[in-house]
């Protein structure tokens, strides 16, 4: 990991955030013919409209509006929510922390389940276990999150009464109850992620097992366990880092639905509420924070990849 590469990668991250901020701003504030009208609805008086336009600075040219807005955001001021009249930034960051707890736990569960499953499927290629694992993986990617979530809630909460159906309890207040409330959403996200990772893990392991160095290791007379764990698994695991990083982007979209269904006050739900109530500052802040989280995660994943695989130099 050379310094030049690192600097380039970080610049790319900053560029990503800038592009995203322009897009978010353009879609939410420039694209609507009259943002003030769409915010206040049809019953707004001309005075109210004029006051709001002045407040939002809608009379200025688009690039001035953007620079003004971006400057405010850059100094950490995300604006005041139109719904709650509270500053948007702190609320969104609290919501983000809850969402991160949800996503990180899901990724951990996924890795614990998907990696062994994928390896087992590869070792038993073509046998019943392999077909079974592949079928389940296929189903996992073919069900939208809201369906998986609803079906799991129907089974585990409504029918078997094992878990609470909705709600959020902070882990700091009541650890046991907090975990019980997290279980269903984490399970839902994991089912979908496991489907992605198992497919990847299976085909990677198959590729690696066919390689010359595995043949060499076997010919040397190394025990099969050493071949598998020391030689094969290490190499097959590398691409999983990438797929998890890409899945974070998918995840951040997915949590909008998951949090909505399970009533978790994370950033996805905050965004959904903001969109339905047309709370412009909250929409902008939420979308921006989400995309920035993705950009940062991707950069970290690239760095981890370059660190784990010394062959990668990206130059």
């Amino acid at each position: 990991m050379s310094l030049a590469w690192l600097v380039r990668r970080l610049m790319l991250m900053v560029y990503t955030v800038i592009v995203v901020s322009m897009l978010v701003f353009a879609i939410t504030q420039i694209l609507p013919a009259d943002a003030a009208q769409s915010l206040l609805g049809e019953n707004a008086t001309p005075e109210m409209l004029a006051a709001l336009r002045a407040k939002l600075g809608l009379d200025a040219p688009a690039w001035q509006q953007y620079l003004h807005w971006a400057g405010r955001i850059f100094s950490g001021d995300f604006g005041i929510s139109m719904r709650t009249s509270q500053p948007v930034g702190p609320d969104m960051l609290t919501a983000l922390s809850r969402s991160l707890l949800l996503t990180v736990s899901s990724i951990l569960v996924t890795l614990l389940v998907a990696v062994p499953l994928g390896v087992v499927a590869a070792l038993r290629q073509g046998k019943l276990t392999d077909t079974g694992v592949s079928l389940i993986a296929y189903l996992g990617v073919s069900l939208p999150e809201f369906v998986t979530a609803t079906l799991l809630a129907l089974l585990l909460a409504d029918t078997l009464h094992w878990l609470p159906a909705t709600g959020y309890v902070s882990l700091l207040e009541d650890f046991g109850d907090g975990i019980r409330h997290l279980a269903l959403p984490v399970l839902t996200i994991s089912v979908i992620l496991i489907a992605h990772v198992v497919r990847m893990m299976r085909s990677e392991t198959l590729d690696v097992l066919k390689s010359d160095y595995i043949r060499a290791a076997r010919l040397k007379g190394l025990p099969e366990r050493t071949v598998l764990f020391r030689h094969a698994l290490r190499n097959a695991l590398l691409p999983v880092v990438t797929i998890i990083a890409l899945d974070v982007g998918y995840l951040l979209g997915g949590i909008i639905v998951i949090e909505e269904i399970f009533a978790i006050p994370g950033i996805g739900r905050a965004l959904m509420v903001a969109i339905t109530t047309r709370d412009l500052p909250s929409i902008q802040a939420g979308a921006l924070i989400m995309a920035a989280t993705y950009a940062v995660t991707n950069t970290l994943a690239d760095m981890a990849y370059a660190f784990l695989d010394p062959r990668i130099r990206y130059d």
Binding site: V19, V20, G249, L271, A287, M290, Y294
Partner: peptide
């Protein structure tokens, strides 16, 4: 392509939601 990759930092569902809300 860099710009394209940057646009992809907005999750598909979020992008769709933003556009529909507008």
């Amino acid at each position: 392509m860099r710009t394209n990759d940057a646009v992809m930092a907005i999750p598909g569902l979020l992008m769709a939601l933003l556009l529909v809300s507008t």
